[in-house]
């Protein structure tokens, strides 16, 4: 469907072509295409600039296929693996300490502050930079940005973990609840290391939390 979406957004440009070129251009526009969705405008800019430079359809198809892999890898690493968790953790921190409305605002602002410019400005960057687009992208030092964001993600994760350990939503604090938080973190690490399915993580959390809730008060009556 991503290929058809590409065909949909380039349709006004393709329709301007002479009738003789239309079938091949339409085939190229709707051909298989799979990359990170936010980088599609960038690809459109590059390909349409190529069309203006009178590249033939085979060459345009080649550049389209060549950029989708690197853009997909960069986009997945930046948007899905770094920015989305960062926005979610920052939103969770805001919701926990400031209230749900702030949680929603912080999450949406952080994510869309980065993703909207890439989508809106991508087509201009791709069109203007054309074959130099990778060099232009490199100027933003994406790997440094990802590293800095990862550090921020870790800091916020640590802070929210401290928040969970020291407070509860009900304004009731209890070591049993804090132990449950620690158990949840342990299960996540074990699950990730052993590639456990998430339902098994859930089950381990349920069993562990029940055991903590049932056993600790018996073992340590002072609690």
């Amino acid at each position: 469907m991503l290929g058809m979406g590409y065909g949909f957004i380039t349709r006004p440009l393709v329709d301007k072509l002479p009738d003789a070129e239309l079938p091949e251009a339409r085939r190229q526009a709707t051909s298989f295409f799979n990359t990170q969705p936010y980088f599609i405008p960038l690809t459109v800019g590059i390909v349409e600039r190529g069309r203006e430079e009178n590249w033939d359809e085979a060459k345009l198809q080649g550049i389209k296929q060549n950029v989708m892999g690197p853009f997909g890898a960069l986009g997945d690493a930046f948007f899905w693996a770094t920015l989305k968790p960062l926005a979610a953790v920052a939103g969770l921190c805001a919701a926990f300490w400031l209230g749900a409305v702030w949680g929603i605002i912080v999450l949406l602002v952080i994510f869309n502050l980065f993703h909207l410019p890439v989508r809106l400005w991508g087509v201009y960057l791709g069109y203007n930079a054309f074959q130099n687009t990778p060099l232009q992208l490199e100027k933003f030092k994406p790997h440094t940005v990802i590293t800095l964001m990862s550090i921020l993600l870790g800091l916020l994760s640590g802070l929210i973990l401290a928040g969970f350990l020291t407070r509860t939503l009900l304004e009731e604090t209890s070591p049993i609840v804090s132990l449950s938080v620690i158990w949840g973190v342990i299960v996540a690490f074990v699950g990730n290391l052993s590639s456990m399915p998430i339902w098994l993580n859930w089950l381990m959390v349920l069993v562990g939390a029940t055991m903590i809730g049932l056993c600790i008060p018996c073992v340590l009556p002072a609690f």
Binding site: V177, V187, I212
Partner: peptide
């Protein structure tokens, strides 16, 4: 409450 907070911990973990 134990289960709920364990799930929060699972998320951060």
């Amino acid at each position: 409450a134990c289960f709920y907070f364990a799930i929060l911990g699972l998320g951060v973990g």
